[in-house]
Amino acid sequence: MKPLEKYNPGVLFFYFLLLASIAMFAANPVMIATALMAMIAAASSYTRDGLGRACVFFFIIFVLTSLANPIFSHNGVTVLLVVNDNPITLEAVLYGVMTGVMIFSVLLLFRVFSALMTSDRLLCIFGRAFPKLGLLLAMTIRFVPLFGRQRRKIENTQKTLGLYKNENAIDTIKGKLAVMSAMTTWGLENGIVTADSMSARGYGVRRSRTSFSMYRFERSDAVLLVLVILSCTFIFFGIATDMLKTDFYPRMKLPPFTVYSVICYVLYAGLAFFPFAAKLRDRAHRAALDRVKMHGGSESSFGEKIRSMYQNETEERSTFGEQ
C-alpha cells in the first residue's frame, strides 16, 4: 500500500466515484454509518483544517435535512406527536436522519476528494480525455494566483498614490473598483503575450493535441483498480437484488444479516477506510524515519554516532561473511 497521493489520479477518481455512489444508492444504515465514520477519519487526516469550519456548515445541512423529512413526509405508522393536524412519525424521522447522515458523509467525501484531487491530478484525468479542455483549465488555474498577486500589487501602489485618500466607505469601494478595472486592462493586454507565446510554440498546428501527464499507471494502481471494481460489483449486485435494502415505510425493516450482506459490509468498510489506513501507514513510516534520523543522524551524540557506524560495519561484515 503506497500513500494515497501516489496513486494514479484516474484510479483515485474512479475509487471516489464508486465510494460515493454506493453511499448514495445503498440506502443502508450500516453502510452509511460506516461511510460516516470512515469519512470523518479521512477528512480529519487529509484536509488541511481537519473537520474544521466547513463541517459546521455540513452539520447544519444535516440537521435541516433530518428535520425537513418528517415535516414534509407523513408516512409511517409510529406517530410521535401531532403538529397542526400533521403527524410526525418515527419512521419519517429515522429516514430523515439517515438521509442527513448520508449527505453529511458524502459532503465529507467531497472534501477529501477536493483535498486529494489537486488541479494537476484533475487535469491528468480531464486532459487525457479532452486535451483542449485540459489546457483551458490549466491556463485558468495558472492565471488565478497571478491575478491575485497583481491585484495586491496594484492596490499597494495605488495606496501610495493616494487612491483611498478620503478614507470612507464610498471611497474604498470606488478604489476597489478602480483597481479591478486596472487589473482587467493588465490581464487583457498581457494576455496577448501569453497568446503569442502559445502560437509561437505551435498552438493550433494540429487538429488534435495530446495531453501530457507525469503520472504513470503502475502495477499497484492496477491492483487497487481491480480490487475496487471487484468489491463494488459485489456490493452493487447486493443493492440491485434488494439484499441490502432497508424499508422505512410503513414500518422500518432492516435487511437481515446474511453471509452475503456481512461480506458486503466488510468490503465496503475496507473500501471506505482505505484512505485512512493508507494515511496511518504513511505516518508510521515517517515516524520510523524520524526515529532513525534522531538516533543515527548528524545531530546525535558523538558516541552514538560511533556506535551506529560500528554496528553498520559489523552488519556489513556479517553479510560478507555469509557470502
Binding site: F143, G148, M183, G187, S199
Partner: peptide, 19 residues
C-alpha cells in the same frame, strides 16, 4: 489565427469572474 488570443481573453475573463 485568432484562436490563441481569443482563448486567452476568455481565460482572462474567467479569471476575473473567479477572483
Amino acid at each position: 489565427e485568432t484562436g490563441s488570443r481569443r482563448m486567452v481573453i476568455v481565460v482572462v475573463m474567467t479569471v476575473l469572474a473567479v477572483v
